[in-house]
Simulated assay, not measured.
Amino acid sequence: MKNYERLKGMIAATFTPMHEDGSLHLEMIERYADYIAAIGVSGVFVCGTTGESLSLTVNERKLVLEKWIQYAKGRFRVIAHVGCNSQVEAMELARHAMESGAYAIGAMAPSFFKPQSVADLVAFFTPIAKSAEDLPFYYYNMPSMTGVSLSVAEFLIEGKKNMPNLVGVKYTHNNLMEMGECLTLCDGTFEVLHGYDEILISGLAFGAIAGVGSTYNYLPQVYQGIFDAMEKNDLVTARKLQQKSIDIVKVIIKYGGGVRGGKAIMRYVGVDCGPCRLPIHPFGEEEYECLQKDLEANDFFNKKV
C-alpha cells in the first residue's frame, strides 16, 4: 500500500447531490468539497449509505468519485465505497477508485444473497480488495442495512490472510463489546472507524480515534468538540455535546432518517444536495419549513459549542 496512514478524526459520509428529477448534480460537488475543506474534516466517504450508493448505477458512482477526487485538491482524503451485490461490479469500482486516485476503498457485504459464514464473506471480498491492492481496504459492517451479522473479529483475522491491504472496519453497529474486541485484536493491528454518530463517545472511550458519519456534514463543531473533550478526558463536555448530537438525530429520524432528513438539512448549510432518489420520496416546501422550525427549536443554527 502506498502512503498508508491511519485515519483520524472526522470522516464525513457524503450525500450525492441530485437535481429535482433525480439526475446527478455533479457541479454541486465543487461547492460541497470547498465546504468540507472549510469545516475541517479529515476525509470523505463517498457513495456509501448516505450517498445512496445502491440507488446509483456503476457509471454514476464513478462520476461522483471522480468529481470528489478532482475537487478535494489534496485538502482531505477521499475514500470510495465500492460495495455492490455484484462482486464483478464491486471489482470494477475498486479498480476505478485506485486508478482515479482515491486514498482507500470500503465495501459493505452483499445484501440480497447474503454470505452465510465468515469464509463466504472473505471469499466475496478477496477479489474486490485485490482489484485495488495498492489501497487500504475497510470492511463496512452495517448489519441494520445488509442483514449480515457475522463475527467482525473473525473476519479481520481470516481476511488478513487473503487480503494484505485489509486494514480495518467501518463499524456501524451498536454491539460495543464486539467493537472493543476489534480494537484490541492482534495488539491493535486493525483500524476501527466508529459509525454511529449518536454514540460517538462510546467508541472513543473504547479507543477509536476516527469516525465516519453523515451528521459530521452539518454538525462538525459538535463532533470535533466531542473528539477534543474525550482526548482531554473531559466527560462532562463530551456528554453535553453528545446530547446535542442526539437531539438533532431525533429530528432527522422524524423526517425519514439520516439519508432523507440529513440530505434536506444540507440546504441550511449552503450546500443544497437536492432530493433523494426514489424510493425515498422527496421533501416538499411545507416539510422544509417544519424541518427548519424543528432545527431552530434544537439550537441547530447556533454554531457555538
Rank of each mutant, 00 (worst) to 15 (best):
211 G>L: 10
144 S>K: 07
100 S>K: 15
39 I>P: 12
166 L>H: 05
145 M>V: 11
302 N>R: 14
234 D>S: 00
49 T>D: 04
262 G>F: 08
13 A>S: 09
62 K>N: 02
246 I>M: 11
152 V>N: 10
64 V>E: 00
90 A>E: 14
45 F>E: 08
282 P>V: 12
169 V>T: 14
180 G>P: 12
129 A>P: 05
252 I>H: 13
294 D>H: 11
114 K>A: 02
252 I>C: 01
214 S>A: 15
160 K>A: 12
57 T>I: 07
264 A>D: 03
225 G>I: 08
278 L>G: 01
275 P>D: 13
81 H>M: 09
30 E>M: 04
108 M>G: 09
188 G>H: 07
153 A>H: 01
29 I>Q: 09
13 A>E: 01
303 K>F: 08
123 A>E: 10
17 P>C: 04
141 N>K: 02
237 T>M: 06
228 D>E: 13
80 A>P: 03
291 L>M: 06
83 G>Y: 04
180 G>Q: 10
187 D>E: 15
157 I>M: 12
208 A>W: 07
41 V>F: 03
204 L>H: 09
26 L>A: 06
63 L>W: 00
280 I>A: 04
284 G>S: 14
100 S>T: 13
213 G>H: 12
233 N>D: 14
301 F>H: 11
282 P>N: 06
164 P>T: 06
299 D>H: 13
74 G>T: 12
252 I>R: 02
56 L>F: 00
7 L>Q: 07
226 I>R: 14
7 L>Y: 14
234 D>A: 02
220 P>V: 05
235 L>A: 01
99 E>L: 03
31 R>M: 00
91 M>G: 06
84 C>S: 15
204 L>G: 04
113 F>G: 00
60 E>G: 12
34 D>W: 01
176 L>Q: 05
269 V>C: 06
71 Y>H: 15
132 A>D: 03
39 I>Q: 13
191 E>K: 07
259 V>G: 03
266 M>C: 11
130 K>M: 10
198 E>S: 06
51 G>I: 02
49 T>H: 03
289 E>K: 15
265 I>S: 01
291 L>S: 03
168 G>H: 12
140 Y>I: 08
165 N>L: 06
68 W>H: 15
74 G>W: 07
220 P>S: 08
280 I>F: 00
140 Y>D: 08
239 R>K: 11
115 P>C: 06
12 A>T: 12
234 D>Q: 02
125 F>S: 02
82 V>A: 09
251 V>F: 01
100 S>V: 09
151 S>F: 07
7 L>F: 15
8 K>D: 03
174 N>L: 10
96 H>T: 05
111 S>K: 04
79 I>Q: 05
4 Y>H: 07
149 S>E: 14
12 A>S: 13
36 I>V: 13
185 L>N: 07
145 M>Y: 10
137 F>E: 06
182 C>M: 02
81 H>L: 03
125 F>Y: 15
14 T>K: 06
93 L>E: 03
133 E>M: 08
256 G>F: 00
292 Q>K: 15
286 E>A: 15
32 Y>F: 13
32 Y>T: 06
46 V>P: 05
49 T>L: 08
252 I>Y: 14
70 Q>M: 11
